[in-house]
């Protein structure tokens, strides 16, 4: 139904096609529609969270062409011809990503609200820097906020995933 939503004829729409978790999506969006609302409300993927709504907390982090962006402050039309990854698309055919496994093994979350953003941001980090120092990790991740005060475990989880991923790659 999402694609056939009724709209006033005088309302401008932008036809966009993009890849969402590896699958082609084609839909019409209005210029003011936010990526967060399109992904959550129209496409039904609720892993991405609305929280601060001002690009400070990182709960709405998505990867666009592999780089982290705040879906809460991204106009949906901006992802046309691009590739979007949400937490729902991270596992490979049911097998969890090493970052997901590491967050479970090392207790990298409590309530879980920040976790999709944490894991996607750290994926972007490890994709560009597979062996980060703890300082590099903190610098990259400082814009992702956890209110359960779980940073120590989160850092441990990401470092463990980095080690695992680089030893597998070798």
């Amino acid at each position: 139904m999402a694609n056939t939503m009724l709209r006033r004829p005088d309302v401008q729409t932008v036809p966009i096609s993009f890849t969402l978790n590896g699958k082609l999506q084609e839909l019409d969006v209005e210029p003011h529609e936010l990526l967060l609302d399109v992904i959550r409300e129209r496409l039904g993927l609720t892993g991405v969270k609305r929280s601060c709504d001002v690009q400070v907390c990182g709960a709405c982090t998505l990867l666009v062409d592999g780089r982290p962006v705040s879906a809460c402050t991204t106009l949906a039309f901006e992802v046309r011809e691009r590739s979007v990854l949400t937490i729902e698309g991270l596992a490979d055919d049911g097998k969890l990503h090493p970052l997901q496994e590491a967050f479970i093994e090392h207790g990298g979350f409590q309530c879980g609200f920040c976790t999709p953003g944490m894991i996607l941001a750290s994926k972007a980090l490890l994709d560009e820097n597979p062996d980060p120092t703890e300082d590099e990790l903190k610098h990259f991740m400082h814009g992702n906020i956890c209110r359960c005060t779980g940073y120590k475990k989160i850092i441990e989880s990401i470092m463990a995933a980095a080690q695992k991923m680089s030893s597998t790659a070798r």
Partner: peptide, 12 residues
């Protein structure tokens, strides 16, 4: 530039 806001703001 490395210290402007956060990684998502710097991206766009």
């Amino acid at each position: 530039e490395e210290n402007v806001a956060n990684v998502r703001v710097r991206q766009v």
